[in-house]
Design a binder for these strands. Structure first.
Lengths: 168, 168
DNA sequence: GAAAATAAGTCAACATGGCTGACATAAAAA
DNA sequence: TTTTTATGTCAGCCATGTTGACTTATTTTC
């Protein structure tokens, strides 16, 4: 994969490019999240709530353990936001049928509405960005972002908790 | 800039691609920062301290207002971490000569050492990622990340608080 | 030269979202 | 039957963001 064709970009240029990338990462992530944060604040939810809503929406029927695995936080931290989301009617729980210890998580209609709205905003930003560059740039972006991930995260992406096929 | 040549990628594919990008943003940023966080924790500093050290290192002699403008936090928030960094010898202040109200910020030797070490780690991650893809992918990554920024952030990047030339 | 604006700092209180440790209950697995 | 697992809960701590109010120099403006 490492390309031989790269001749020898001078070191200082590489250094500058790398530092610039660090800064882009910081600023792009901040701008990216702040838009969603603003929207969520209007319904008195924070970023942590959004993450739960997003990943439950993405994996309907996910159990708590798998969700914790994705979020990489403690169950006590999750408990706080999840309880609130259940109390306020964004998420509902269902006892697992195979394993009755499990509480499977689903979005309510209200939860789906919010998820769609925030995801729409975030997709819009990416869509705008993607439209302003070439297809190859988009491919390049995806390739670099994937290469930034830890092994553990890659495994997570490759083995989603619930097969996309089995939910109706 | 919007390219006409994009024919018509099917909508569901675009949707999936956009959602995948959202997730990459979340996971890549998390993996990216967690490595630095671990290192900083060893010297009892957090992410907020690191940001200050990074941007002061990047803009030696920056004043408080400009730093606040970059970080986009309140002065009370900055005060907490900045005071701590001064107390523990990572940052020093110097009264401005033109405007004596200003406190210009510089890294100490200790501050520079830490900055270098953490930046080295983060650069390493980008260098590894960049090496594993083509040059065009790197260019594409940079292009997309730039397109993700808010106008205000772009202005910030284009008008750094201190001209890089004038510091010795 | 007086008044207003600006740069910086400080105190107090509060919100969010991480964390640890300890312990409980039900169900599945060994 | 014992052990392990999935989930939840209480209590408290920490980092880092927020608002609001007020002070002190210094510079700018009228």
């Amino acid at each position: 994969m490492a390309d031989i064709k790269t001749p020898h970009r001078p070191l200082f240029l590489r250094e500058e490019e790398l530092r610039y990338s660090i800064e882009l990462m910081f600023f792009a992530y901040r701008d990216f999240t702040s838009e969603a944060d603003t929207h969520l604040a209007r319904v008195n939810l924070g970023r942590a709530h959004h993450r739960v809503i997003y990943f439950v929406g993405r994996n309907p029927g996910i159990n708590v353990r798998d969700l914790l695995n994705i979020l990489n936080i403690t169950k006590q931290s999750l408990s706080r936001v999840l309880s609130h989301l259940i109390d306020t009617g964004y998420v509902r729980q269902k006892q697992g049928s195979a394993d009755k210890r499990q509480r499977l998580l689903y979005l309510t209609q209200q939860g789906e509405a919010l998820e769609h709205e925030v995801t729409r905003l975030q997709c819009q930003r990416f869509a705008r960005a993607f439209k302003s560059v070439s297809d190859e740039s988009v491919t390049g972006f995806l390739a670099v972002m994937e290469s930034m991930l830890d092994e553990k995260t890659i495994a997570l992406l490759r083995h989603p908790p619930i097969s996309k096929k089995q939910d109706p």
